[in-house]
Write a protein that binds this DNA or RNA. Structure first.
Lengths: 253, 253
DNA sequence: TTGTTACTGTGCACGGCATGAACACTTCAT
DNA sequence: ATGAAGTGTTCATGCCGTGCACAGTAACAA
């Protein structure tokens, strides 16, 4: 099931760090010596816990190792570098793509983007992972799911990819915005200090913007911005609708 | 010209690090003691050089200090933390927004997004700056420029902001993609090692994708992806056209 | 059985990073 | 002139990722 290194594979050395590992392609080594006491899976799981709890910076090698009960350097027996660990971490965090209805590409694409958005909301640290290695298994599975439902539109492969980029980009950006700007509801739930901080930023920015004649922005920021609580009006859904409309225009030639 | 701290300002302590500094709001301190031998401007300029040359990681406090000819800790007399420096760095890198034609909102918005895209291409490290502090002066000026040309569409302030987010998001994502995936032309210019690396990735991914029945993706990747060289066909322009179409549909109700 | 070999986890070490605290020195306000 | 405020340096701490030598262990070869 899991592909192994074989002579006809391209030179694995030339691949960016983590790529081969993410796809499960590793020279599985002989079986001499002590059995490893742990596993890459365990390491990823622990790192994920840490990242979930305190952000990506908390998933450092010393902290992961400490929680596993092992020296930092022992991790290098499982993972060739920090970067590789992060790639594996990110791939795992994507998880499996949702099942998409076929028949209505627009509805399917909307669902795809919403699910992705929610993924990013629930694992905000995923937004902090640099996206140098583009395609890893889970990641690719998401992409495949989307392209599959887009095919009936008759678009070319290129353009389907570009549509996927649009929807992915939007989900990321929206999730990032929401992370930095709590919704009114979340704000009401927040502690007084946080509420005061948010208010301070608003007041400060309004003052600065107006004093520099950036009134267009100041006006737009007056009522709390991106994500209101009601889905049909919030920024994510608005942008999603625009993107889908734009694609629809294109599909209808 | 430069606003100073005054008693009626909101509590500056509650603001995220760098925000107040970015807007030039600082308690300007007495004028006792030795004159500073350097300036925040100089520090930012040096840090920008370093970031331009070797990426954001090269703009570390020791390196900046070293190049200025001063101890690392001396920088703390000008900047209260690394984070603040990065915010200032990013704001400066945005630069001034382009002049936009009025009369045709669509053309203006397209121009805005293209210019932003180019900005990100020429300063890729800007994509690595976490966007926690959203609005800084240059940044806000860009936003203001766009909103100003969108106003004639009659959209509400909220929706204009959301459109700005769409265009910003697209520019960022596109620039990031291109950074990781050289265009065919750039690839031809690259050295043999890089060419081999890119080819290795392509071959590897194709193999992996097909062996997992992710053929939709594999097919889409067959011909080199996002950004071809000819503007009307590349991924950025495609996505931009979709977004603008989507906005146009909305504007025409 | 006895090496030999490959692999494990540990200990030690390094250099880089952001940042804090004490200090000597300089300049201006009083 | 004196003292407060502000400058840059020195010393220090605690993180981080990573390389290397080592002792131990388990499978294979003789």
């Amino acid at each position: 099931m899991t592909p192994r290194k074989s002579p006809d594979d391209a030179d694995l050395e030339a691949l960016p760090p983590g790529l081969a590992a993410a796809w499960g392609v590793v020279d599985a080594g002989g079986r001499r010596g002590p059995k490893p006491a742990h596993s890459v899976e365990e390491i990823i799981a622990v790192a994920t816990e840490l990242a979930d709890a305190e952000g990506i910076a908390a998933a450092s090698l010393p902290k992961v190792a400490g929680r596993i009960g092992v020296t930092t350097n022992a991790l290098y027996r499982y993972v060739s570098s920090k970067e590789e660990l992060v790639v594996l971490l990110a791939d795992r965090a994507w998880g499996d793509p949702p099942a998409l209805p076929d028949g209505d590409w627009r509805e399917a694409a909307a669902l795809w983007s919403r699910r992705l958005f929610e993924r990013f909301l629930s694992r905000p640290w995923l937004l902090d992972v640099p996206t140098t290695v583009s395609l890893t298994p889970h990641n690719a599975a998401w992409l495949d799911a989307l392209i599959t439902v887009l095919r009936p539109t008759g678009m070319e492969a290129q353009q389907m990819l570009n549509c996927a980029y649009l929807l992915d980009s939007h989900a990321r950006y929206g999730a990032n915005l929401r992370r930095n700007t709590p919704t009114p509801a979340a704000l009401r739930r927040a502690n007084p200090d946080q509420q005061r901080a948010v208010r301070a930023v608003r007041v400060f920015l309004d003052g600065q913007l107006r004093s520099r004649d950036l009134n267009a922005v100041a006006d737009a920021l007056e009522n709390p911005t991106f994500l209101s609580d009601e889905p049909p009006l919030d920024g994510f859904e608005f942008g999603l609708a625009r993107i889908l409309d734009g694609i629809e225009v294109y599909v209808r030639r």
